[in-house]
Design a protein around this nucleic acid. Sequence first.
DNA 1: ATGATAGCCTATCAATGATAGGTTGACGCA
DNA 2: TGCGTCAACCTATCATTGATAGGCTATCAT
Lengths: 200, 200
Amino acid sequence: MEQKGDKAGSTMPGKTLDRREQILDEAQRLFLRHGLDAVTTRQIAQAVGISQPSLYAHFPNRDAIAVELCIRAFGILERRLRKVDAAMTGAARLRELCRAYIDFGLEEPAAYRVAFHADIAMDEVSGKHRGLEAGLATFSILRSAFGELLADPAAAELAAQTVWAGMHGLVSILLTRPEFPFVERTRLISAHLDRLLGPA
Amino acid sequence: MEQKGDKAGSTMPGKTLDRREQILDEAQRLFLRHGLDAVTTRQIAQAVGISQPSLYAHFPNRDAIAVELCIRAFGILERRLRKVDAAMTGAARLRELCRAYIDFGLEEPAAYRVAFHADIAMDEVSGKHRGLEAGLATFSILRSAFGELLADPAAAELAAQTVWAGMHGLVSILLTRPEFPFVERTRLISAHLDRLLGPA
DNA sequence: ATGATAGCCTATCAATGATAGGTTGACGCA
DNA sequence: TGCGTCAACCTATCATTGATAGGCTATCAT
């Protein structure tokens, strides 16, 4: 088994990444690979190279780790959307933003589930706040894209929320009920976007 | 503590409801009240008045109970939709079906989650099959409503799937991320229906 | 009567999240 | 140097949960 100084000592003089970040990195890797519920605190600890109770020196409980990964998942989505956002304008941008959103969900199902499905105790004040903040930052990209097309900010907000919800539904149902006899996927996605945004 | 003959003997001569149904009834009550993850097999057993291991004489595992309740949840939804379905026709019927769907999700959040979110091991052949069947029976109501409006069956299928997904998204996000600063709910729902079905 | 069977129960597992309490090593300071 | 302090860990251990093993008992056909 690993000794305590092993990990840090073999790679770096001081602190590698504050151990907390290291835990989150390993947890993220495991969560994205195996899903939220399938990963135990012992697995995370082993991946990091510390004992399971040592996790609790950095996080009050398992949910706190999940909250951080929820925030990271929003970060991944946000980066994807910003990339599209910066590359286009107008109605085309809106459509591609939606497409990028759906692609994210289908390509990173575990991340998507952590971000949107996870029954995380968002009750904790700080966790709730930061998670909400991360979600809002991501959502604001979509809202801005609508703002470009709709003069009324309230209308843009409303449109963004309904479209967001609509996309979420498609991704969500595709992920959680794959046994359903869906129409061919690309056709389904296109039809869904047509319905939400109007025909291309 | 209860004795074994107590429950059945005090209420009925023969078999009350085959014990299995009794277990499902109590489990449903608990699940709807406290949510899927919050209910343990011991709680269910205690509610029924039997020991926890006795559950396993009727179900192979906890997930099997959840699958049955998933099917029941679809049953509740189906009944609601059929009621609306029988009372109206045309575009108005479609809109009211969607509204009934959304109402169901918001009024019976636990049932909705069991039906759509539950990470149930639908791997088991029988469970998967019956769960899928229940879902299809419910979905077919929506498909038929579209069939009344669209001549092409394939178009109706596609439309029904996209609209279903769209509604699911709204309900889903309202249930799982209530902390998000949503627009006023009735307005959001109306706007969502307008977007999915066209303005009323 | 009697042997099989259904339906339960007690005892017990293994896995998991979480806690308690001790050990170690670095660092400041007399 | 010697000593107190403190952070970071570790081992041992809990309580809870889903699940299994094996025995008891009443009913029922023969």
